[in-house]
Amino acid sequence: ASVAVIAAGTQGNIFATSALRSMRFLQILRMVRMDRRGGTWKLLGSVVYAHSKELITAWYIGFLVLIFASFLVYLAEKDANSDFSSYADSLWWGTITLTTIGYGDKTPHTWLGRVLAAGFALLGISFFALPAGILGSGFALKVQEQHRQKHFEKRRMPAANLIQAAWRLYSTDMSRAYLTATWYYYDSILPSFRELALLFEHVQRARNGGLRPLEVRRAPVPDGAPSRYPPVATCHRPGSTSFCPGESSRMGIKDRIRMGSSQRRTGPSKQHLAPPTMPTSPSSEQVGEATSPTKVQKSWSFNDRTRFRASLRLKPRTSAEDAPSEEVAEEKSYQCELTVDDIMPAVKTVIRSIRILKFLVAKRKFKETLRPYDVKDVIEQYSAGHLDMLGRIKSLQTRVDQIVGRGPGDRKAREKGDKGPSDAEVVDEISMMGRVVKVEKQVQSIEHKLDLLLGFYSRCLRSGTSASLGAVQVPLFDPDITSDYHSPVDHEDISVSAQTLSISRSVSTNMD
C-alpha cells in the first residue's frame, strides 16, 4: 500500500485504499475450498504439459491467421470504412471474430473485405477451437489413466503375492535341489530340531500304542527276528556328554522351557516337584528354603522380579524323601529317536503342500481383483469380450473355409453374387472337401465294379455249361463312374476274359 501511495501521489490514498479493500473479495475463495484444490491444478498442469506441443502448434497457427486476416482486412477497409482507421481496430475485429465472440461493433463494408473476412474466419476458427478439443481429450485420457492406475494399485499386491507364491512353489520342487534360497528361508522360521524330535516322538508313541520308545526297546525280541524299528541315535539331556547330531552343545531358554513342560507332561506320578524357592531380598537368592510367592517384596526391581519368575519355571527341586529312583531318572531322560535326515523329507513334503495351498489362494485372490467394480468397468469388459468373440468367430470361419475348400476369392465371389465353382473344380482343390469328394467317387466306382462281377458270377453259375458261358453278354464299365481312378482293366474288353475262362473250363471238362 505504501508503494502504491508513493507512486500515485497524494491523490492515490483513496485509490490504494479501495484497491486493498477490493482484495477482500479473495476471501470468498476460501468458501469454495480453492486453497485446498491442489490436486485439480496439478491435474491441469499435467494435461497442459503432456499436450504442450499440440497446444503450441495450434496457438501458433491461429496467431498467424489472426495477424494476416487483420492486416488484409485493414488494407481493404481503411479507405471505405471509418471503423478500420488503424491496424489496432482491425486487430480487435480479428480477435473478436476468430474467437467466435462477434460483438458486431465493427464489420467490413466492401465486398473484398467481406470475402477476406469469411475466408479467414473459416480457416482461423478451426485453429482457435483446437486447444479446447486438445485439453478436453487430454483430461479424458488423464482421468482414464488415473482410473486404471487405481485399479492397478488394487491389483499390484495380489499380483506380487501370486508371483511370489508361484516362485516358491517352483523352487520347493524336490527335483530342483539346486534352488536353496527358499529352503534357507524356511530353515530360519521353522522350530528347532528338538521340537521336531518331540513332535515325531509323540507320533511314534501313538503308533506304538502308547508305549515310549524306551519301553519298546525293553520289550523282549526273539533271536533272529528283525527289529520293528531301525537303530537310531540316542540323545540324552544337555547335561550328559552325548547330543543329537546337528545340535549345539548350548541350550537356549526356549529349549529349557519346552524341556520343563515336556517333563511335566510325562505324568505327576513319576515326577514330584517341590515348592519353588524364593529369594528373600533382591540381592541374594536362598535356594535351600522354600517360601511362598506372596511374600515377594514390593520394592524389588523389574529385573529381580523377572529373575524370580524364571526361577519359578526353570529351577524345580525335589524333596529328599520323594527323590526318584535311578530307573525313573533313566525313563525321564530325553530320548531322541530320530535324526535330521529322517525328519527333513517329511518336513519338505509338508512345506510343499503348504506352498501349493498358498499358490491356489493367491491365484483366487488375484482373480477376484479382475472383477469389474462399476458400470464403466462392466461396459469396458463387455466390449473387450465382444471384440475377442468376433476375433474367435473370424478365426473359426477361416478354418471352416479351409476345411470346406472355400477360399478368400470364392468368398468374395459369393458376396458379389457370382456363380460358384463347379464340382470338377471342387474335386481338384487341395482341401478337405476335395479329398472327401475324391474318396467318395472312388468308393462308388469300386462298388459298381463289384456289383458287375457278382452279377457275372451268378449268371455263370446258373448257366452251368461252357457254351452258355461264352454266350453271356458282359456289360462294359461306364468310364464316368470311375472318377479319376483309372484301372488298367477298364480299357480292355471283358469278353476276352470271358473267352479265356470258357476255354479253360472246356479243357478241364475234356480232361475229366
Rank of each mutant, 00 (worst) to 15 (best):
P213S: 09
P275L: 11
V216A: 13
V400L: 11
S445P: 01
L452P: 03
I356T: 00
V375G: 11
F456Y: 09
G239C: 06
D484N: 14
Y382D: 04
A274S: 13
L452R: 07
E447A: 03
R218L: 15
K254I: 15
R205L: 02
T277K: 14
D480G: 11
I253L: 02
P279A: 15
K416Q: 01
E289Q: 12
N303Y: 09
G385C: 12
S242P: 11
M251R: 13
A219V: 07
V378D: 04
P245S: 06
A346D: 03
P279R: 15
R352L: 03
C235G: 10
S487T: 14
A323T: 15
V221E: 08
L501P: 12
R258H: 02
A413S: 09
W300C: 05
E429V: 10
E440G: 00
L461R: 15
T241N: 01
R459C: 12
D223G: 12
K363Q: 01
D223A: 03
C244F: 12
Y485F: 12
G470V: 02
T465P: 06
A362S: 06
F477L: 13
S502I: 14
H448D: 13
E201V: 03
H386R: 10
S483P: 12
I354S: 01
P475Q: 04
A467S: 14
S487G: 13
R176P: 05
N303H: 15
S504T: 15
T306A: 10
Q402L: 02
S395C: 08
P316S: 09
G420R: 02
V489M: 04
K438N: 05
Y186N: 05
S353C: 00
P421R: 12
L214V: 08
K332E: 11
M251T: 08
L370M: 06
W183S: 13
D322H: 12
P245R: 10
Y373F: 08
P488R: 15
D187E: 03
Y229F: 05
V427E: 14
H236Q: 10
R435G: 02
L211Q: 02
L214M: 02
H491L: 15
T241S: 00
L453R: 12
E321G: 12
S502C: 15
T277P: 04
D428E: 02
T500R: 09
I253T: 09
D428A: 11
I494M: 04
G391C: 09
D223Y: 03
R309G: 12
D255A: 12
Y334C: 08
D187A: 11
K416R: 10
Y186F: 06
N510S: 15
D341V: 01
N208Y: 06
K438M: 03
R317G: 04
D490G: 10
S192P: 01
P293T: 08
F302V: 13
E447D: 06
P226S: 04
G405R: 06
K270M: 10
I494F: 03
L476P: 02
D478Y: 09
F200S: 15
V361G: 01
P276L: 10
H448Q: 06
D388N: 13
S508R: 02
A320G: 15
R435S: 01
H236L: 10
Y229D: 10
D423H: 04
A166V: 05
D480V: 06
D480Y: 15
P238T: 05
D484G: 10
K270Q: 06
S311Y: 02
S301C: 02
R250G: 14
R265G: 11
G385V: 09
G260S: 01
V443E: 06
T291P: 11
I430T: 05
P488H: 09
G210A: 15
Y184D: 11
D478A: 11
A346V: 12
M511T: 07
D478G: 09
K441E: 03
G470D: 11
I379F: 04
E337K: 09
L211P: 11
R505P: 08
I494S: 14
R218W: 06
G260V: 07
